[in-house]
Design a protein around this nucleic acid. Structure first.
Length: 421
RNA sequence: GGAGGAGUGGCAGAGUGGUCGAUUGCACCGCUCUUGAAAAGCGGAACCUGGGAAACUGGGUCGUGAGUUCGAAUCUCACCUCCUCCGCCA
C-alpha cells in the first residue's frame, strides 16, 4: 500500500509502474474514487462538528423546552449524517479495493521485460560442472540411493507428492543445521513461526487479494502461508519499534505451502516444484530510507550467494524484470543454481525489498531521531529451500558410480563425505 | 467442546449515557531549588487524519466491527485476545 497523498501527487509514476509490472491498473479510477471519498468525508465531518457542538449545549441546557428544541434540531442533523455515511460506504469499499491494487514503484535499475525470460543476468559464479560420464538427473540418483520415493509420495499426496527417506532426510537436516550456524553468524535471530496464519498477514505482505488461488485455506478461514516471510512480517504488526533495535534480522524456518495453481504443466517431475517444502528465510526490517533498503538488499542477497558458494554449486544472479516483480516489490534479485541434467540455471532464491509497502499495511513503525513516527522498510530473501536445493546439489556432486560426494562444509553435519558408499 | 471473568494512554489503574480523549500513581521531558545528583515544587506530554506557510483548527480513536441514542469508554449484538474452572485429546 502506498500513501494516497503520494499517489495523488505522483499518479504518472504509478501508471508507469503498473505498465512496467504488466499490472492492469487505472490510477485515474482511484483518483476519482478518492475525490468522491473526500467530498463525502468533508461533509460528514462538518455535520459531526455541528453535532458535537450541539451535544455540549444539550448537556448544559437550562430548561426542558430548550433541551427538547435542541434535540429536535439534532434529529435533522442525524438524518443527514446517516444519509451521508450510507453514501460513503460503497465509495470507501471501492476506494479500499483500489488502494490494495496500487503497485509499488520499481527501481530505475529494474529492466523492462515481459516474463522471467527477460531477467537480466548480472553475475555468474563457478564453472558449469563437467562430467567424464553421462550425468543422471536428481530423481534417478536419489531414488537409487534410497533418498527419495516419488511414486509413493504421489500415492499418498497426489500430484507433486514426495517422500524423502534415509540420506535424503539426513542431508536436509545437515543443510538446515549448517544454514542455522551460517546465518546466526550474520546476526540473524532464528525463528520458528506459525505458518497457519490469519488473512490479515497475507494482505499485509501483499499476497492477498491477488494471490488467493495459490494458497491453501482452512475451514476456519485461516491460510497456510507459502513462506515464513508472512508470519515474520506479522510478528511486529501494529508495533512501534525502537530505532535502536533496527535493523531487525530474522531467520525463519518453516514448512511452506503452495498450490502452484498457475503452474499445472510446469516442472511436473522431481523436486523442483512441490506443494509443500521447507525453507529458511531472511527477513529484515530497517529504518526508512532508500539507501538503507538497498544496502540490506545487497546484504541479504549476498548472504545467500555466499552460502551457495560455500557449498560450491555454480550459480548465476539475475535482476528480475518488471513483469517478474510482485505488486509490492521495488526490486528483486533471483539466484539460480546450475542443474546439469537440464543444462540450465534454476531459481533457488529470491531477494526483494519493498520500501514501506508492507509495513504500511501491517502498521510497523519506529520513532526516528527527530521523534517522528515512520513506517519501517522491509525486505526478505530466501536463505535456503529444501528439497529444491537437493536437485542441484546431488546433480552437481554425483559421481560415476552413482554415489554423491558431500560438499565439504556439510561433511561435519552429515557425518560422512560420500552418500551411497 | 461446555461454564464463567476480563480487555482503557509506556505501565498500573479509576471511570457505567452528556464540559471524558479520559481522575490518579509510576515512568518520561522541561524549569525552579542544588556545587552536582537525589528529594521536593511547578509545568509539559497519546495516536491517526482533513485544512493551513504557520499560529491554529475540524474529525476520529477506551480490543475490533455493527447497532440503540440528539449524544456511547459507559447500553445491545457479533467477532478477536487473555484468564479461571469442567470435559476431551496428547
Amino acid at each position: 500500500m502506498l500513501d494516497i497523498k503520494f499517489i495523488r501527487e505522483n499518479k504518472d509514476l504509478i501508471q508507469l509502474a503498473a505498465k512496467k509490472k504488466h499490472i492492469d491498473f487505472d490510477v485515474e479510477k482511484l483518483i476519482t474514487a478518492d475525490d468522491e471519498r473526500r467530498k463525502f468525508l468533508t461533509n460528514s465531518e462538518k455535520l459531526r462538528a455541528e453535532q458535537n457542538a450541539a451535544s455540549d449545549k444539550i448537556a448544559s441546557a437550562t430548561t426542558p423546552e430548550e433541551r427538547a428544541k435542541l434535540i429536535a434540531d439534532m434529529k435533522v442533523v442525524k438524518t443527514a449524517l446517516e444519509k451521508d455515511e450510507e453514501a460513503l460506504k460503497p465509495i470507501m469499499k471501492d476506494w479500499q479495493s483500489l488502494m490494495l491494487q496500487v503497485p509499488n514503484i520499481p527501481d530505475m535499475s529494474v529492466p523492462d521485460g515481459n516474463s522471467d525470460a527477460d531477467n537480466r543476468e548480472i553475475k555468474t559464479w563457478g564453472d558449469k560442472t563437467s562430467f567424464a560420464f553421462e550425468p543422471k538427473d536428481h530423481v534417478e540418483i536419489m531414488t537409487k540411493l534410497g533418498m527419495l520415493d516419488l511414486e509413493r509420495g504421489q500415492k499418498v499426496h497426489g500430484f507433486r507428492g514426495y517422500f524423502l527417506t534415509g540420506d535424503g532426510v539426513k542431508l536436509c537436516f545437515a543443510i538446515w543445521s549448517y544454514a542455522l550456524d551460517f546465518f546466526s553468524k550474520k546476526n540473524f535471530t532464528p525463528v520458528i513461526p506459525p505458518i497457519l496464519v490469519r488473512k490479515i498477514n497475507l494482505f499485509g505482505t501483499g499476497y492477498l487479494p491477488q494471490g488467493e488461488e495459490d494458497m491453501y485455506k482452512t475451514q476456519d478461514g485461516d491460510y497456510l502461508a507459502g513462506t515464513a516471510e508472512v508470519p515474520l512480517m506479522g510478528l511486529h504488526a501494529d508495533e512501534t519499534l525502537a530505532a535502536a533495535d533496527l535493523p531487525k534480522r530474522y531467520l525463519g524456518f518453516s514448512p511452506c505451502y503452495r498450490r502452484e495453481a498457475g503452474a499445472h504443466g510446469k516442472d511436473v517431475r522431481g523436486l523442483i516444484r512441490v506443494n509443500e517444502f521447507y525453507k529458511l528465510e531472511q527477513v529484515v526490517m530497517c529504518e526508512a530510507n532508500h539507501e538503507t533498503s538497498v544496502k540490506y538488499h545487497d546484504e541479504v542477497n549476498r548472504n545467500t550467494e555466499e552460502f551457495i558458494e560455500s557449498l560450491r554449486i555454480p550459480y548465476r544472479t539475475v535482476i528480475n524484470c518488471g513483469a517478474d516483480l510482485g505488486l509490492g516489490q521495488v526490486k528483486k534479485y533471483d539466484i539460480e543454481l546450475w542443474v546439469p541434467k537440464e543444462s540450465k540455471y534454476r531459481e533457488i532464491s529470491s531477494a526483494s525489498y519493498f520500501h514501506d509497502f508492507q509495513t504500511r499495511r501491517l502498521n510497523i513503525r519506529y520513532r526516528d531521531q527527530e521523534g517522528t513516527l515512520r513506517y519501517a522498510h522491509s525486505l526478505n530473501s530466501t536463505a535456503i529451500p529444501t528439497p529444491r536445493i537437493l536437485v542441484s546439489l546431488v546433480e552437481n556432486f554425483q559421481q560415476a558410480d552413482g554415489t554423491i560426494k558431500v560438499p565439504e562444509v556439510l561433511v561435519k553435519y552429515l557425518g560422512k563425505d560420500i552418500i551411497g558408499a
